[in-house]
Write a protein that binds this DNA or RNA. Sequence first.
DNA 1: TAAGTCATGTAAAAAGTTACATGATTCT
DNA 2: AGAATCATGTAACTTTTTACATGACTTA
Lengths: 199, 199
Amino acid sequence: MAISTLGYALLGLLAREPLSGLDLTRALQQRVAYFWHARHSQVYPELARLEAAGLVAHTVVPQRDRPDKKVYRPTEGGLQALREWVAAPTDLPSIRDELVLKVASFWLIEPEQAAARLLEQARLHEERLALYESFERDVRAQDGGELADPGSPAFATYLTLQRGLGYEREYADWCRTAAAQIARGATRNVAADGSLDID
Amino acid sequence: MAISTLGYALLGLLAREPLSGLDLTRALQQRVAYFWHARHSQVYPELARLEAAGLVAHTVVPQRDRPDKKVYRPTEGGLQALREWVAAPTDLPSIRDELVLKVASFWLIEPEQAAARLLEQARLHEERLALYESFERDVRAQDGGELADPGSPAFATYLTLQRGLGYEREYADWCRTAAAQIARGATRNVAADGSLDID
DNA sequence: TAAGTCATGTAAAAAGTTACATGATTCT
DNA sequence: AGAATCATGTAACTTTTTACATGACTTA
């Protein structure tokens, strides 16, 4: 019974600090959303599978003002499985990007609409970028000293953050450049047949 | 019965030229692999669903030296559905990147191994980049004149290609920068405890 | 006591991967 | 005749999403 990628994602988070299912779900929807994502309906069953396989164990932690929670931590076997997976080569990911899929058919719609969609998308990516930049400030402030040590979790976090930042910057830039190219093309066509205008 | 994203992907390809299931599969594994991907076992059933919904139709085309094939083309309704989907806003995609997930746990393994994995991955992305650069040359050579017209399929192809190129460049750069940062950090640690070396 | 958050689950359906299967045609 | 490619499909399984469900505790 092989471990799923989601299983390794959970092990990777638990290797840093013990967490409950809800904590893990929150991480997978916020902190870590730029490289892995899952819902709670995936997290709880996966934790049960990992525990059945002896890779994590939980303790029930009573809380004063909230319901009890199950806090999971990796077993020695779980950590070992994680290390082996982390050290193994990785295939190129297969990409599925709905926006780019739409852009491939932008020749079917009005250039004005196409450009507007791209600018809209650019704003969304810039919002995320701002969020990641605030993460970056947090990391620098909290873990400044460890950021040069490849053996520290903070260093690894910093590397992945750089990827998130680079990804969002590149994406937003592409959106704006593409929108501009559409506008330029549409304007040029106006000059040719004098029937359209761009704002 | 709503149309799946894969359905729109197929409609988008068929809107450019009539294709068989195998042609579509090939496109989804090569030409357009940088924004959508699918196997033939997904393509054939999806084509059947689209046809049942009246969005595409096929004709059997006999071939001289090969088995007959079914060539699909979109119906007027299929084109209309595609146009509406293309013009609609798109949510930010949820990302699942196995390499970055591993990098988040790189603090668990030897820095030398971590850096080697990143350089390995950089090479893979640079290979893809070279492939996309050859696509770009093809597009420029074949459709040079249409590349300024937002109403032409070639223009849309060019925009998506720019995205693929930017994505791969950014990814490869990040891999190399991250590997260098790991090497630098590991070297610095050597200086501190004098127990390791980097080649 | 009603609404809201915390916390943990299950069920059903959709999407995607891997494996199995078959027939036509060509090339060696 | 056997291997290779072209072409189209189905079956079983895994992964992911969406929806349903329930109980503890807090605050207004």
